[in-house]
Amino acid sequence: MNQLLVNNVTLVFAFALVLVAMLISYREKLGLNKDILLSILRAIIQLTLIGYVLKYIFKINNVFLTILMCLFIIFNAAWNAYKRNPNTNRNYWETFAALFVSTTVTLGIIMLTGSLKFIPSQVIPITGMIASNSMVAVGLCYRNLQSQFRDQRQQILEKLALGAPIKLAAITILRESIKTAMQPTIDSAKTMGLVSLPGMMSGLIFAGVDPVSAIRYQILVTFMLLSTTSLGAIIAGYLAYRRYFNKRQQLLTQE
């Protein structure tokens, strides 16, 4: 296995990269310095804490704790996706349902194929990978729904006035939003190996695994991400569009 060269001293030197970002923010008056410092501070604290937590969970290898950790990841991913929903009439548990179903179904299928064992060192990182991609897709779906409901308000009103049920009135917007949510994953899959050597594959190569074996894992990850983003976006979209209407099937005014 390769010798990993990142230690505390190298991390301190690498902090110079953060200074580059801060310098640009300062020179261009972007007003991002406070945000950059806060994000770095949060990343260091969160990653250090999770490092110790994962070390403990991997060591005791308990099913209940593993499930709890996976739920914690899904809960947080859902919270972040929920916060990205600009609709004031939003609901957290609908977002949680989208994240929970997309993550567990994808994880379940991968485990059924035998590619993944139910041990914390495998299930937890993969849950994080799946949930974070679903989170991004769900967030994109929400934002697109909001902008399209604003831009196409008149069209929806006209469809409702003709007697269309809300699903038919919103179906074009819904399809477009789901498509937008899935597009980055599809684009990324198209350029994989040509533009990017993605995280899973890079990690395995770093750890000394033969690149050809690493590719197999990356292909598996690509399948997983396609499944989770499509499931997440479709569930979130179908639950979220209804919240732009009231019980009388009238289009709500957005503030």
Binding site: Q155, L157, E158, A161, L162, G163, P165, Q249, Q250
Partner: peptide, 24 residues
Amino acid sequence: QTAYDYPTYRQQVSYCFQQPTLFD
């Protein structure tokens, strides 16, 4: 009005907008 299924009601009481938008 509240006793009707809303889409069914709107099919019978149909509203045409001033300067309508055509879709698709």
